[in-house]
């Protein structure tokens, strides 16, 4: 029970973070604040994937050394038998997916900020309700 809690409590924090980001997107009136909420939302999702990939008694998915000169004796033994034990390493597939998500996220943030600058030049405000009044 305690092991289960220690292995999963990070999800509680990350879901709380998710809700904080959603609260920012929905209730804040300033558009820059909405964008900050969106960023928080996005990295909460990224961290949920990273937390799902991690496991106990496993190391970073990097094979030490190369060829004959292995640094770790255990890894060298495994390599000598021709099999790398996958259970000793953290699953790297979610990491690569989230790497892509981070880069796409910064691109969308840049586009959103360019739109905000254009909106401010045309209407002179970034407040949502004031903006709706001036647009009508």
């Amino acid at each position: 029970m305690l092991d289960f809690f220690l292995g999963h409590y990070a999800y509680l924090f990350l879901v709380a973070l998710f809700v904080v980001g959603l609260y920012g997107v929905v209730t804040k009136r300033n558009l820059v604040k909405k964008l900050i909420g969106l960023n928080i939302f996005q990295s909460a999702i990224i961290l949920i994937y990273v937390a799902g990939a991690s496991k106990w008694n496993a190391t970073v998915p990097i094979l030490e050394g190369s060829g004959a000169s292995y640094g770790d004796a255990g890894v060298a033994q495994e390599a000598a038998h021709g099999a790398i034990e996958a259970a000793h390493y953290i699953n790297p597939l979610p990491h690569t997916l989230m790497l892509t998500a981070i880069v796409v996220g910064v691109a969308t943030t840049g586009v959103a900020l360019a739109l905000l600058i254009t909106i401010h030049r045309r209407y002179g405000t970034l407040d949502e309700s004031e903006l709706l009044e001036r647009m009508s």
Binding site: A10, I46, V50, A53, I90, P94, M98, I102, V103
Partner: peptide, 15 residues
């Protein structure tokens, strides 16, 4: 800390 070092340094540089 969770073992995703590549995501870690990309997040530090980009984020």
């Amino acid at each position: 800390v969770m073992g995703a070092v590549d995501v870690g340094f990309t997040e530090a540089v980009v984020g």
